[in-house]
Computed example of a mutant assay.
Amino acid sequence: MAPPLIVGVDGSEPSLRAVDWAADEAALRGLPLRLVHASLWERYEGTVLAEDLGKPSEQVMAEDVVETAARRAHLRRPEVEVTTDVLPEEPEYALVRESRTATAVVLGSRGRSGLTEAVLGSVGVTVAGHAHCPVIVLRKNHDDRVRSATGRVVLGVGGRREDAAAVRFAVEEARLRGVPLEVVRARLRPGPEAPHHAVEPGEPVASPAERAAEELTAALRDIPSGTASRRRTVEGPAHRALIDASAGADLLVIGARRREGHYGLALGRVARAVLHHTGCPVAVVPE
């Protein structure tokens, strides 16, 4: 059996919306769904689920969290196989470990201790930065539908060979949804004193725009023929280009590189900014 989609659930509204989204994604991919609640606390802390169950919050237990999420997934997609688990440990560590045997991990983001939705919860940042599979993060303002009537999948590339895993993931997501793939390569405007790009003697000097276009082509060399795609380079900071491109998209896909000397993935400024401010669900794909 193919590895499942794993959803981290905590009973909050964002996590239940993530369950809805993941149930649709599991149906698209023909995958089982695994709902995991990880916490060092036996009881659920919050009011949304308590009100739904008609219980005082201090009487809502971890089993209530996963059972409610499982019922929601079954109502959403009866054809999807759903399993649940309760793990007595910190969610960051539990979900990173679970990612070793998952197709992807899906999370709803929320700030802890009443922080505003503008601040991504630490669980989302940690899991996206250390997981062994793609991590898809949905913010509270994101639609819980994986497909829209006029949707598309946006892929951000940096012109590196390491973008290959993100490219493959984005191509497959666009194919499953039956929507176009939009590929974005950002480039900065060179300053007046910026050094020229090093070239060999006799080699023509390429402009920044030409180099960005060449890097975009190189990153997409293995994209299957017949894939409906739009490719463009955008002048400006990468995080701003991707945030702008994400407006109205079904999914934004970015790659994350492993760095020597770090545990797992070290998310850079672009990935962090996108996770905090993007206008659609974000998939962070480890290379």
Rank of each mutant, 00 (worst) to 15 (best):
residue 26 A to W: 03
residue 274 V to D: 10
residue 78 P to S: 05
residue 265 L to S: 09
residue 139 R to L: 14
residue 207 S to K: 07
residue 254 I to R: 01
residue 112 R to T: 12
residue 273 A to C: 06
residue 205 V to W: 09
residue 121 G to Q: 11
residue 250 D to M: 09
residue 97 R to Y: 11
residue 174 A to G: 10
residue 255 G to L: 11
residue 216 L to P: 09
residue 92 E to P: 05
residue 65 V to A: 07
residue 17 R to A: 12
residue 88 P to N: 04
residue 183 V to Y: 07
residue 247 A to H: 14
residue 198 A to I: 06
residue 58 E to L: 05
residue 4 P to N: 04
residue 187 R to W: 15
residue 59 Q to I: 00
residue 173 E to R: 14
residue 63 E to M: 06
residue 277 H to S: 13
residue 7 V to Q: 03
residue 261 G to A: 04
residue 142 H to F: 03
residue 30 G to M: 06
residue 276 H to V: 08
residue 90 E to M: 08
residue 274 V to F: 12
residue 118 A to G: 11
residue 218 A to E: 05
residue 257 R to F: 06
residue 229 S to H: 12
residue 286 P to Y: 12
residue 282 V to T: 14
residue 97 R to Q: 13
residue 201 P to V: 01
residue 114 G to L: 09
residue 27 A to F: 02
residue 37 H to C: 06
residue 212 A to W: 02
residue 277 H to P: 00
residue 147 R to S: 14
residue 261 G to E: 13
residue 30 G to Q: 09
residue 226 G to R: 00
residue 211 R to F: 00
residue 83 T to L: 01
residue 27 A to N: 05
residue 121 G to S: 07
residue 143 D to I: 01
residue 270 V to C: 06
residue 148 S to W: 08
residue 61 M to G: 05
residue 217 T to V: 15
residue 239 H to W: 05
residue 143 D to L: 12
residue 229 S to G: 02
residue 183 V to N: 07
residue 258 R to E: 15
residue 153 V to C: 02
residue 156 G to N: 07
residue 27 A to Y: 03
residue 213 A to Y: 00
residue 215 E to N: 03
residue 216 L to S: 05
residue 119 V to N: 00
residue 124 G to S: 15
residue 281 P to E: 04
residue 253 V to Y: 02
residue 260 E to M: 02
residue 170 A to S: 08
residue 258 R to H: 11
residue 284 V to M: 07
residue 281 P to H: 15
residue 61 M to D: 03
residue 34 R to E: 13
residue 199 V to A: 08
residue 66 V to N: 08
residue 174 A to Q: 02
residue 219 A to R: 02
residue 104 A to V: 04
residue 259 R to V: 08
residue 286 P to K: 11
residue 101 T to M: 14
residue 243 I to T: 10
residue 27 A to D: 11
residue 68 T to Q: 07
residue 122 S to M: 08
residue 221 R to K: 10
residue 199 V to Y: 09
residue 150 T to H: 11
residue 253 V to C: 04
residue 42 E to S: 12
residue 57 S to F: 10
residue 18 A to F: 09
residue 159 G to Y: 10
residue 53 L to S: 09
residue 271 A to M: 02
residue 137 V to P: 03
residue 198 A to V: 09
residue 6 I to D: 06
residue 23 A to P: 03
residue 246 S to H: 03
residue 250 D to V: 08
